Structure formats: C-alpha cells, structure tokens
Amino acid sequence: MLRNLLCGAQNAVMELVRILESRGGVARRRTLLQLGFTAAELRKGVAAGIVRNPAQGVYAIPEADPQYLAAANRHGLLTCVSAASYYRLWRLHDHRELHLQLKPGVHHAGVVAHRTSRFRSAQTAPVAALADVLSDALRCLPEPEALVMVQSAVGRGEIAQEFLHRNLPGKRNAKARKVLALAYGRADSVLEVLARSHFIKAGIGFEQHVQIPGIGEVDFVLEGFLIVELDGATHFEARGVKRDRRRDNASVLRGNPVLRYFYDDVVHHPERMMSQIHGVLDRGRELGISRPRRR
C-alpha cells in the first residue's frame, strides 16, 4: 500500500509538471486547485524541487517563460507588444517595459498597465485575448508598431478588421481606428505594410503585387510606371542579387524605372525614401508618363 501511495504521489507531481508546461510553465494556485490538484500535492512538488513557488499563490517550473512568470506574479495578463510573440505577431522593436492587463488601481514599477478587458481570454498561458491585445496596441503604440501587429493578424485571417473597428468606438479611439484603416489583406513583410501606409498618406496612387510580363511579380507600381521593390534578407543571397538585377534591367527596358529599398530605409528613414519617390514621380508627370490610379 505504501508503494502505491508513493507511486500515486509521484504521478501527481509529474501531472502537475505537465499541466504547468502546457500553460507556459506557470499557473496560479487557484487554477491548479480547480484542475483537481490538492494543496498537499502542490507542496510535494515544491519539496521535490521539481516545481517552484516564486510568489504567494504562484507555481512554476524552472524553465517557465520569464514574461509569463512576471504576469502571474502581478495577477495580470500579457497584452499589447508583450503578447506579440505569443500570437506570432510582427514587431518592429523590443520593449523593456512589460505591458499587462491589470485591474484598475493596480500599479507596478516597470509595467505599462492596460485597463480594458473586453474579451475573455481562452489561452492557458497568462495572455489576454487577441482582440484585446490588438486594441491595446492600437491605443498604446506608435502608428508603425501598432500597424504591423494588427496587419500580421488580419492578413492571416485570425481576426476581422471590421470586428476590431466595431470594438473601438468613440472619440477616444479615433486615432486607433485611423491606424486600423491602414491594414489590408495580403502582406508579405513588415516593409510592405509600412511602405504602403506611406504611399496612402502621401496620396500616391499605386498597385500592389503586380504581375508584369517578362519580369514577374513586383511589390508596387506607383502611378502606373514607377516600380518600387522592398528587399528583405533573401535578396542579399548571391542568386537573389543576380535575379533582382536582371529583373531591374528588364523593367528599365520596358520603360519602368525601379527604386529598391531596404529595412533601414523603410523603418528608420522613410522621409528620405519618400523624397526620392516624389522626385521620380514628379519627373514622370513632367514627361507625361505618370498615370495616377485609384488605390
């Protein structure tokens, strides 16, 4: 009987570890008790050194994600840019501050508190619902950062743009809705998202993902003649460089000038990029080859 009891206790501890692993490595005591574990089993897990008890009411495995652990310790949920990795959303920058959904009146040093919680999270890890994460980002982050996060979710069909719009009512969300309006269907990269937003705000007519005979698909055609290509990491491979140069030559022979931009241009120096684009478009208008088109 003693042997059976020992085996039962060991199995309970292993099950506790499995449950914690499925939740990003951390869970609160109340949740674990609701799942059927006893207080004695939790104590045994800690005594065995397999499970940690880093804060009152919090249990975690040693490999627990630090952000999940920080959220659980503060009775919060990761949201905004801090939840981007969980949902595999695009990000432009890392942030030192932790963005958490917290109850009103709760404050923690080094934490950006988000108070709105409109949707119940179905995630087992301490992460807010996707709709709340994106809404928080739209209200909190600079336009480019919020836009790329929203675009990655909208583009993959994980959330509807119209649904987010409906849940951002009133004057206080006007700025968020304006950023949301810049999102669209297909986007192959962060660079496309940002470049497209610059073209829209500049009032430039463009087509995107255009198939051109003898050249293939190009990223953008502005005002019917100027090709703009955005180069990611794969374009720097030897084969990619040769392919791109030959495509550029073919484009020029067709009468389409080509401008290429890199991550640094689009993300860090968009004003320089747009100045060059305006210069070519102005020249095209002077020569009568510009054909502004509706977006």
Rank of each mutant, 00 (worst) to 15 (best):
R3P: 00
C7L: 15
G8A: 13
N11T: 03
A12I: 03
I19A: 10
R23K: 14
G25C: 08
R29L: 12
L32Y: 06
L32A: 08
F37M: 10
A40W: 02
E41Q: 15
E41K: 02
L42Q: 02
L42V: 03
K44F: 04
G49L: 12
G49D: 09
G49Y: 05
R52P: 01
R52W: 12
A55S: 13
A55E: 13
Q56N: 09
Q56P: 00
G57I: 07
Y59V: 11
Y59N: 08
A60F: 02
I61H: 01
P62Y: 06
E63N: 05
A64D: 07
Y68C: 12
L69Y: 04
N73D: 03
H75F: 03
H75M: 06
T79F: 13
R88A: 13
L89P: 02
L98Y: 10
H99V: 10
H99P: 12
K103A: 14
P104V: 03
V106Q: 14
V111E: 08
V112W: 09
F119G: 01
S121N: 07
Q123I: 00
Q123N: 13
T124D: 11
A125L: 08
V127M: 14
V127G: 14
L130D: 14
A131H: 15
D132M: 04
L134S: 04
L134P: 04
S135D: 05
L138D: 04
R139Q: 12
C140W: 04
P142D: 13
P142F: 13
E145Y: 00
L147R: 04
Q151V: 10
A153L: 06
R156F: 00
G157W: 09
Q161M: 13
Q161T: 14
E162P: 00
H165Q: 08
H165D: 13
N167L: 06
N167K: 04
P169M: 02
P169V: 01
G170K: 01
N173L: 04
A174G: 00
K175V: 11
A176I: 04
R177G: 07
R177A: 08
V179C: 07
L180I: 07
L180S: 09
L180K: 05
A181Y: 01
A183G: 05
A183E: 02
Y184G: 06
G185R: 09
A187L: 05
V190M: 01
L191N: 02
R196I: 03
H198K: 09
H198Y: 15
F199T: 01
K201M: 14
K201C: 09
A202K: 11
I204K: 02
H209I: 00
Q211R: 11
I212L: 15
G214K: 09
I215T: 10
E217K: 11
V218S: 06
D219G: 08
F220L: 08
V221M: 12
L226G: 09
D231R: 03
D231Q: 12
D231F: 02
T234E: 13
F236V: 11
R239F: 06
D244S: 10
D244V: 10
R245P: 00
R246E: 15
D248P: 08
V258T: 14
Y261P: 00
F262S: 01
V266R: 06
H268P: 01
P270R: 11
R272N: 12
S275K: 13
L281C: 06
R283Q: 15
G284Y: 04
E286R: 15
G288F: 08
G288S: 10
P292N: 10
R294P: 03
R295E: 02
